[in-house]
Amino acid sequence: MYTSPYQPAPAPTRRWWQHPALIICLLVVLPPAGIALAWTSLWSRNKKIVATVLAGLWFLLFLLGDPPEETKDDAKTAPKPTATVSPTPTPTPEKTEDAPVMPRLVGSSYADIEQLITDNLGRTYAAYKDVDLPADRAAWTVCFQRPDAGAPVSSAVPVVYLTEPGVPCPKSPDEVLAKPTPKPKATTPKPTPTRQPTRTPAPTPTQDADGGSVYYRNCTAVRDADAAPIRRGDPGYGRHLDRDGDGVACES
């Protein structure tokens, strides 16, 4: 077997400052030192050129950028300019003497206050909940008002509660006008007339075929004539009345 007398050169030993991680950190944090170590490393020439260009651009951007802002500690120690405080003018209260106030409306008729309610877009209600306001309410009386007398008219919409003439005002607008229901007149019952029993008139006695002066058709006619019982020989006796032939007719 042929053996070459020339042995391959041993690989160069890498020092600690030639470690890639250390060089990359220096290229970012301290570009000049990182570039110097990159050219002493075992990298290829192309890698060294690329690392040098990128680190140089990063270093130029850092130098040309805005200066860092002052830290909070510096800002605290810096004297603050004293601001000149101008006195705040005290607002002058407006005069309310000329502002219109709500007059006393309670006790007035609606005809007297109608213009005030109309001009201020007021509302009108009945003083009783169960009473409806008619279209013509000029004679109605004011029982309640809102706002009270003396309050500014512009503070609220005026509201009045009315009641019809002759009807007293309630204690509050929530009451109901309880009108008494007229009681029906007591009528004396008429006495019922007592019906008299109708009596059947006694049959008119007629002569019988034998020449008798009285003739009864049946026992009912005999009883109606108060002639029962009839014995043989009495006026009106007949065999048709004596069923058992014992001589006494209409015994029972």
Score class of each variant (00 low, 15 high):
P81L: 10
P81Q: 13
P81Y: 05
T82N: 09
T82A: 14
T82G: 05
T82V: 14
T82R: 11
T82P: 00
T82K: 13
T82D: 10
A83Q: 12
A83G: 02
A83F: 10
A83K: 12
A83V: 15
V85H: 09
V85E: 10
V85F: 13
V85I: 15
S86F: 12
S86Q: 14
S86I: 11
S86D: 06
S86E: 14
P87G: 07
P87S: 12
T88P: 00
T88S: 11
T88H: 09
P89Q: 12
P89R: 10
P89D: 09
P89G: 04
T90D: 03
P91G: 05
P91S: 12
P91T: 07
P91A: 15
P91H: 03
T92R: 07
T92N: 05
T92D: 04
T92L: 08
P93H: 04
P93F: 03
P93K: 09
P93D: 07
P93W: 01
P93R: 05
P93M: 05
P93N: 07
P93S: 08
E94Q: 08
E94P: 02
E94G: 04
K95S: 15
K95A: 14
K95V: 11
K95F: 03
K95M: 06
T96I: 12
T96Q: 10
E97I: 06
E97A: 14
E97F: 04
D98M: 02
D98F: 05
A99M: 11
A99Y: 13
A99H: 11
A99W: 15
P100S: 10
P100A: 15
P100C: 01
P100E: 15
P100H: 02
P100W: 06
V101C: 00
V101A: 08
V101N: 01
M102H: 01
M102R: 02
P103S: 08
P103R: 06
P103E: 04
P103F: 05
P103Y: 06
P103A: 07
R104G: 10
R104E: 15
R104I: 03
L105I: 04
L105G: 00
L105T: 00
L105C: 02
L105H: 00
L105N: 02
V106A: 07
V106K: 09
G107I: 03
G107Y: 09
G107R: 06
G107T: 06
S108T: 09
S108P: 00
S109C: 01
S109P: 01
S109I: 00
Y110V: 02
Y110W: 13
Y110R: 02
Y110M: 07
Y110S: 02
A111M: 07
A111W: 08
D112K: 12
D112H: 09
D112G: 05
D112F: 02
D112S: 15
I113G: 01
I113E: 00
